[in-house]
Design a protein around this nucleic acid. Structure first.
Lengths: 159, 159
DNA sequence: CTGTTTTAGTTGAAGCTTCAACTAAATGAA
DNA sequence: TTCATTTAGTTGAAGCTTCAACTAAAACAG
């Protein structure tokens, strides 16, 4: 039995930084979105993923994959978004097990009005701190980590 | 009024990767810690920060800073850890406003027994996916982002 | 076909986090 | 001093997430 390898200096720095980003960045974006439209970052992402999908609808499973969420979490949130009139649930023609989440016009209007402020916040909170090379490095390294966590994650599909 | 700058390809890749890591990595580490000791990643970090502090105690505010948490969140969690016998609350000698959180022997035993498995999980889930250069890059870039989010964050203090 | 397994999704309860309101002590201003 | 402000922390309620149990349809196996 070998002694467990502890983290070296860079490993520790990388890990602690990621851990901190992990709590601070969503919190800051949540604050911005909460002020702009009384929704969370996760709510926003659900709407954003639907808005980018062809026909502005996706099966719950696919939407869950694109938001890295459990089906249960998504189901609760879609119920909430439905009550706000931003999303509708529809039956799938070919497979009766499938529920399709469909972005409404009101939902589209919401995401369109929120997007600029949200993108500005993403820039202000992280991208503006980085050079172009940093951004490319982070994209490359980040995708490696995502591949490790889920080797057929959807963000890796389009390459 | 200028048109809002949208994200370019690398910016979008970096942002989506970070967003995905953000939900997948804590979830995976939570699962490991839940199985190993019925605690969350946040619980673990509270214990870890105390175990590394001199005297194994810290004021609540300082512990909140080192875990990037709100005082309210920390207060609830310390109450829970206290019920499990891992942490105790003590008065601060010089300032009656301050509550000091102190890691107990049982708490120290817990973190010592959990640490190897947790570090292995951190390696398996992210570090093993990266080269040494990647790790150094991530540390550098990650710290830039942290500085942007909180310019006197504690992880930046020790350099 | 018929029974079994897998896939898709929902639900309610329990636990966690955030938010707002609050207490109390220390600091600062006049 | 005395009053106002800031700092440190706690608390209960509301909302969010996870977990386990469940329904129902599709796919599969014999």
């Amino acid at each position: 039995m070998t002694e467990p390898r502890w983290l070296n200096a860079d490993e520790r720095r990388a890990w602690l930084a990621l851990l901190s980003i992990n709590t601070l960045l969503p919190a800051a974006l949540d604050t911005q979105l909460q002020a702009a439209g009384k929704l969370s970052l996760f709510d926003y992402n659900v709407l954003a993923m639907l808005s980018e999908a062809e026909g502005r609808f996706l099966p719950m499973s696919e939407l869950a994959a694109r938001t890295s969420a459990s089906l249960s979490r998504l189901s609760h949130v879609v119920t909430k978004l439905q009550r706000r009139g931003w999303v509708e649930r529809e039956a799938h023609p070919g497979d009766a097990r499938v529920t399709v989440a469909h972005l409404t016009e009101a939902g589209m209007d919401t995401i369109v009005s929120l997007a600029p402020g949200h993108v500005d916040a993403v820039r202000a909170l992280m991208l503006d701190a980085m050079t172009d090379d940093d951004v490319a490095d982070l994209a490359r390294i980040g995708e490696k980590i995502v591949a490790r966590l889920d080797d057929d994650h959807w963000i890796l599909r389009e390459r």
